[in-house]
Design a protein around this nucleic acid. Structure first.
Lengths: 312, 312
DNA sequence: CCAGAAATCGGAAACGTTTCCAGTTGATCG
DNA sequence: CGATCAACTGGAAACGTTTCCGATTTCTGG
C-alpha cells in the first residue's frame, strides 16, 4: 500500500509542501552564509565548500551580505530570530561586543569563520594568518633575501590586524625588526596595492639597503606590488621577491606565478559546515574550536636568484 | 496604540515568524539562483548582481547547483513544486526538451539566463556571444592581423556552440574562412587552453602564413593561449595578439592585460532579477525577452605592432 | 440628541504538514 | 473459541501567521 502511494505521488509529481512541513517540524532545512562581499574569491570558495557539505544532508544555502560594520552584522544575526534558517555561518570583517552578544543570544546555532571566539563560548573556525606571514618571511630569508617590505590592508580589520602582528613578530625574531618596513594600502585590491607598494619601494632606508622582498597581505596586493616593482624597471623574482596570501587561482596563473600562503578557505568552509551539522544534531554549543593551519605554496615569484643569492 | 505595540515589539526583540507568515501568504520571499558551478567568476558576478537587486525588495537568494546535465537541471526545476522559493533564475549549460518542459510546467516563475527561449514562451535574458566573437575578429583585422586561430571550449555546450558559430560567420564574411583555423579545448580552463593552443600553433597552413592572432572563447583559455605562445619564444601582443571573453578581473590584471569581450554578466543578472520581480508582481510570463549586447574591451594583449602592422 | 457611517477591535478560519491518540482490525496464544 | 496484544488506520490537534467577518465603539452630520 505504502508503495502504491509513493508510486502515485511520483506519478502525479507531488512533493510535500516545504512550508507546512517547516511550520510543523520547526525546521527549515536552510543554513545562511553571511559575508561582507560575496564577490571575494575567498568567500566564494568557502561558500562552495559549505554548499558541498550541506547539500547532501538536504540543507539549502542562503546567501546574505552583512555590510562591513559589526553593527550591521549584529543586526543580521538578530534577524535570525524570525526563523528562516536553522543555522548561520558568518565571517565578519570586524568584531565587537555587540556582535558577540548578538551571536550569544542567537536562537539558532552560529559558527564564526575568522578570529577565534572561544573565550566567548562561540563556535569558531580560525586560521593562523599571523603564522602564515611568518612562514612567508622565513621562506624569503632562507632563499637569501635580506630586506623585507610588508604590504598590508586596513589595520582595523581582523585579517589586517592579525597579519600585521605576524609580520612584526617574524621580523622582530629574525633581526630585531631592522631591515623591515611596512606600508598599509587603502584596501585589499590591486590598485591600492600598486599605490602603497610605490611608497614602500621609494623609501630609502638609513643603511642604504634596497628592498629585495615584499610580503603582501593577500594575492591582489601582491599583484599590485609586482606592478609597482616593474614600473621601476626591476624584475620579479630577480630583483624583488613577492609573496601573497590566500592562494587564489588568480595568483596561480599570473606570470610569474605567485608564492602564496594558503589559508585553506575551502577547508575552513567545510569544517564550519560540519560544525553546523553537529550543532543542529544537538552538539554542545561553544565546544567546537577548530584551527586550520596555513601552508606556504612556493611558486615562481620567490625563486632564488642564481649566484648572487638574491641580494644586491 | 499601534506604535506602542511596535515599540514593545522591538523592545522585546520580537520579529514575526517567517514560516507561519509564508504558510499563510503562500509566499516565501526567497528566490533561487541555480548554476552548474558556483565557483565560476561569471556566475559569481551574476549572483552578486541578482542579490543586489533582490535584497532591497526583501527577497533572499538561495544558491543551488544544477549539475551539468539538462536532466539534473530539469529535476531541480521540478523540485520547485515543493514551494521553497517564489521564483528561479537559472543559467543552464545545455538545454533540451525535457528541461524546456520542466520550466513550462513550473509552478513558479522561471527566468533563464543564456540562450533565448522566446520560442517556448520562457522568459530569458540572452547575449550575443556569437556577435561578440565577431567584434573580436573585426578588431584583430583592423589592427592588422592576418591569420586568426580560434580557441573554443566544448561544442556541446550552449556557449561553445554559439561562439563557434560566431567565429565561422565572422571569418567567412571576412575572407571566406581562409586564413582561419579552430581548435577545441577539453573545457574552459587555463590548462586545457594551453594544450589546445599548442596544437593550434603547431599547425602549418598550406600557404605558410603563421598565426598572428588567437581568439579565445573565454579569458581562462586566453591565458592558456598566452602561455603556449610564450613557450614557443614568441611574444604577446608582438607576435601573436590574443583576445578573451567574459571580461573577468583575472584578464584585467594579467600582464599583458587581456582584450576581452564583455558579456555583461552583472548586467544580465540585474535584468534577470528585475524580470523575476515583475513576474512575481503579476507580469505576463513569457513576455520578457532581453538581450544584453556584448562589448569589446580593448587592452594590451591586442596592441598593434609598430611599423610592421603586426603581421610577419 | 440620534441615526447612520466609519473606524476599530476581537475572534475564528485557513494555509499544509506532522504527530499523537483513540479506535479498530487482525493475529497469536492460552 | 475467547482474550490479550500488536499493528494498523483515521481523525484531530498543533505549528504562527494573515485575512476575513461580524460586532462594538467612535465619529459625523442632520
Amino acid at each position: 500500500m505504502v508503495e502504491r502511494v509513493r508510486a502515485a505521488a511520483t506519478e502525479l509529481g507531488y512533493s510535500p509542501d516545504v512550508i507546512g512541513r517547516s511550520l510543523r517540524m520547526k525546521k527549515t532545512f536552510q543554513v545562511a552564509f553571511a559575508v561582507a562581499d560575496i564577490g571575494n574569491p575567498v568567500y566564494v570558495e568557502m561558500m562552495a565548500a559549505i554548499h558541498e557539505v550541506l547539500d547532501p544532508h538536504g540543507y539549502r544555502v542562503v546567501v546574505m551580505t552583512t555590510g562591513d560594520t559589526p553593527r550591521s552584522t549584529a543586526d543580521l544575526v538578530r534577524s535570525l530570530s524570525s526563523g528562516f534558517v536553522d543555522a548561520l555561518v558568518v565571517s565578519p570583517l570586524r568584531t565587537d561586543d555587540e556582535l558577540v552578544r548578538a551571536i550569544q543570544d542567537s536562537p539558532v546555532p552560529v559558527v564564526v569563520i575568522g578570529r577565534s571566539l572561544a573565550a566567548y563560548g562561540i563556535d569558531s573556525v580560525s586560521t593562523d594568518s599571523a603564522g602564515g606571514i611568518g612562514s612567508a618571511v622565513a621562506h624569503l630569508l632562507e632563499t637569501g633575501r635580506r630586506r623585507i617590505g610588508f604590504l598590508n590592508g586596513p589595520l582595523d580589520t581582523t585579517p589586517g590586524e592579525a597579519r600585521q602582528r605576524g609580520f612584526d613578530d617574524a621580523t622582530a625574531a629574525a633581526f630585531d625588526g631592522d631591515r623591515a618596513d611596512a606600508e598599509v594600502a587603502e584596501d585589499f585590491t590591486v590598485a591600492a596595492g600598486t599605490a602603497a607598494a610605490r611608497t614602500l619601494l621609494a623609501r630609502v632606508p638609513a643603511d642604504g639597503t634596497r628592498l629585495d622582498a615584499i610580503v603582501a597581505a593577500n594575492d591582489l596586493l601582491a599583484i599590485g606590488a609586482i606592478r609597482a616593482v616593474r614600473e621601476l624597471g626591476l624584475t620579479v623574482p630577480g630583483d624583488v621577491a613577492v609573496t601573497g596570501m590566500d592562494d587564489t587561482e588568480f595568483g596561480q596563473f599570473f606570470e610569474p606565478s605567485i608564492t602564496s600562503v594558503s589559508l585553506g578557505s575551502a577547508q575552513r568552509g567545510r569544517v564550519a559546515a560540519q560544525i553546523v551539522l553537529d550543532l543542529m544534531d544537538g552538539a554542545e554549543p561553544g565546544a567546537a574550536q577548530s584551527l586550520v593551519g596555513p601552508s606556504l605554496r612556493v611558486r615562481e615569484s620567490t625563486a632564488a636568484v642564481e649566484g648572487t643569492g638574491g641580494a644586491r
